[in-house]
Amino acid sequence: MPIAACIFDAYGTLFDVAAAAREAAAQPENAAIAESWPRLATDWRQKQLEYSWLRAITGEHRDFWAVTRDGLDWALDAQGLRGDADLRERLLALYWQLPAYPEVPEVLARLQAAGIATAILSNGSPAMLDAAVRSAGVETLLDDVISVERVGIFKPAPQVYELVTTRFSCARDAVLFVSANGWDAAAAAGFGFLTAWINRAGAPQDRLGHPPHEELPDLATIPEIASAL
């Protein structure tokens, strides 16, 4: 049966999470990370995710902006930059202006033209997601932006994915869920969604028992896949 909605993860899927460190590193005043910014970006993202998982497990929820700040603090500390308040503030400011990947506007526009509902389902707080969507200029191409704050727990908790079926009044197998995070795609597949894993880095599949229905290098063919379901 035709899908009811095409749902996207936000960070790393629609929005380039490495952009904040990359842009900061290009500024002369941030010479301390001119060469090490890729490691900083990787550490920041990994700790951001780890802290979200641990908070979901322990039930000690804080919103994603708090988790993002904590992850950055760890990453800066790992590079001996714990006391660089100006760099920290610049990186955090840039995180509110993450660019979309180049193909994103066209992909969303094509889905919209095909009459397929689109939305974001993200760990991000409502304020973070609103800023990201507006900065990328895609607010008119989305039917909804759904934050985990509606249920107060991070992915991969199943009640997060249930937000989609509730919002669109649809069966689980009527959703195409798209994520660049292998663990997220696996959890969504286990929940019952059709899934597309955007494997930009060419990484191995996670061993979680729920392989993605599609594995793609970018988002470009998502409209064709969604229309064919």
Rank of each mutant, 00 (worst) to 15 (best):
H213C: 03
Y161I: 05
P156R: 12
I225M: 01
P28V: 10
A174D: 02
Y11V: 13
V104S: 07
R172I: 03
Q48C: 11
I146T: 04
A66Q: 14
F154I: 04
A21E: 10
P223L: 01
T42P: 03
A78V: 07
R82V: 10
Q79V: 10
F191T: 05
A78Q: 12
A127Y: 02
L229Y: 03
R172K: 08
W65R: 09
G152I: 10
I57E: 07
A127H: 05
L121E: 03
T221F: 00
L121V: 02
A41Q: 11
A56W: 11
C170N: 06
S52D: 10
P2G: 03
F168I: 02
A34P: 05
L54P: 04
Y101C: 04
A34I: 03
V107K: 07
T58H: 12
E162G: 13
D9L: 02
A117N: 06
A186E: 11
I3E: 07
P217T: 08
R134L: 14
A174K: 06
F168S: 02
P223Q: 02
G190C: 01
C170V: 03
E29L: 06
S36I: 10
R88W: 01
R22S: 09
A171L: 10
I222A: 02
I198P: 01
I116G: 13
T140C: 06
G182T: 05
P38H: 12
D143I: 01
P102C: 14
A20Q: 09
E103S: 08
V175Q: 00
V164A: 00
D144F: 08
A117M: 00
P126C: 03
D144H: 14
I222C: 04
S179V: 00
P223S: 07
A113I: 12
D144G: 06
P204G: 05
A21K: 14
R110E: 14
A113R: 13
I225H: 01
P211A: 05
N199I: 02
D73K: 09
D63H: 09
L142I: 11
A189S: 13
L94E: 15
I120R: 00
E35C: 05
L81M: 09
D43P: 08
A66D: 15
I120L: 06
S135F: 06
D144M: 04
A113K: 11
L40M: 12
M1R: 13
V164Q: 00
R82Q: 14
L94D: 08
Q159G: 01
A187M: 07
T118Y: 01
A117C: 04
Q159T: 15
P105Y: 15
H213K: 05
G80P: 00
V107H: 03
A10V: 08
L141P: 00
N123F: 04
L98Y: 08
L142K: 07
A56L: 09
Q205L: 13
T68V: 10
A85G: 11
G152Q: 10
L229Q: 03
D86K: 15
D206M: 11
A24N: 10
A201E: 14
I3N: 00
V145W: 02
P2F: 07
R22D: 13
Q112D: 12
L81K: 15
A157T: 05
Y95H: 14
A19V: 04
A41L: 12
A85V: 14
Y11E: 04
A174W: 00
L194W: 00
